[in-house]
Design a protein around this nucleic acid. Sequence first.
DNA 1: CCCGGAATATTAGCCAGGCTAAGTTAGTTG
DNA 2: CAACTAACTTAGCCTGGCTAATATTCCGGG
Lengths: 144, 144
Amino acid sequence: MRDDPTQMAEQVSKVLRHLVLLLRRSSAGQPVTTQQYAVLGSLEHGPRRMTELAEEHAVQLPTMTVQINRLEYAGLVARGSDPADARVRTVELTGEGRDRLHAVRRARIARLAHDLAALSDDERDVLAAALPVLAKLGIDRTTQ
Amino acid sequence: MRDDPTQMAEQVSKVLRHLVLLLRRSSAGQPVTTQQYAVLGSLEHGPRRMTELAEEHAVQLPTMTVQINRLEYAGLVARGSDPADARVRTVELTGEGRDRLHAVRRARIARLAHDLAALSDDERDVLAAALPVLAKLGIDRTTQ
DNA sequence: CCCGGAATATTAGCCAGGCTAAGTTAGTTG
DNA sequence: CAACTAACTTAGCCTGGCTAATATTCCGGG
């Protein structure tokens, strides 16, 4: 298949659609939406500024403003200021935000681990080998 | 890694997030949204009823109604009736809908093929081997 | 010193795409 | 034939995107 990129692309496309449906089914009705969870994850290692968050999540600044507003209202993050530049707002996790992040992460990892446990050793090997390749896919698109 | 499902799940989780971001970046500003494209794809092999479409896309019936309304307004699908049961509405592609589906598909496949072409032969082999495994992931979740 | 432009966020207003609850119409069954 | 069930649609709400239009604040040149 590797010699017919078009055919392979069709397979990849189907698999992507499958994964998207999987994610949709598994994230319905969770205590934190996938977007909120992703943003909380960005804050794990310290405060970030709004522009950073927006870029990292491939989103416009106003979109991130609204996200952070909701998270702040929910008590999961707090806004701060940069003493060196009064224009920038920083965002950081509250204690509750950190707790929630870890709880949701545990649940997601556990579910994934459960799914992975249903595979054979060989299948897990194959999958593990492919992860770096998947991570590499499309990285040059981000610079366009 | 295969012997530590939790660690592997973390890796998979990261890769999934990467793929989601990829999809978001690549689908921004397309002539057809990914949802619309997916629905058109379901109609490729003939008319379907609303309930079928909703189930297939893991969505409630009212959500599918709205989707089909938009596609119908855009002239890409047409509603019909089941002569055997006046309650059911059928949906099928119009000529323009079929053209649009094929055009969008070509574009998506081409972009994916381009990305795949940037990989080495070995990497493509590894990825090709993993596709069936990925397709298998989580299929038992749908029955819960 | 200060004035104009650039950078950082926010607000306002729009749209897509989810959901539930309630309503309509048509089949099914006791 | 009355009551229930099934298939959709409508209405109303929420999240999460976007652009355009404001503040604010910083910075560099005259």
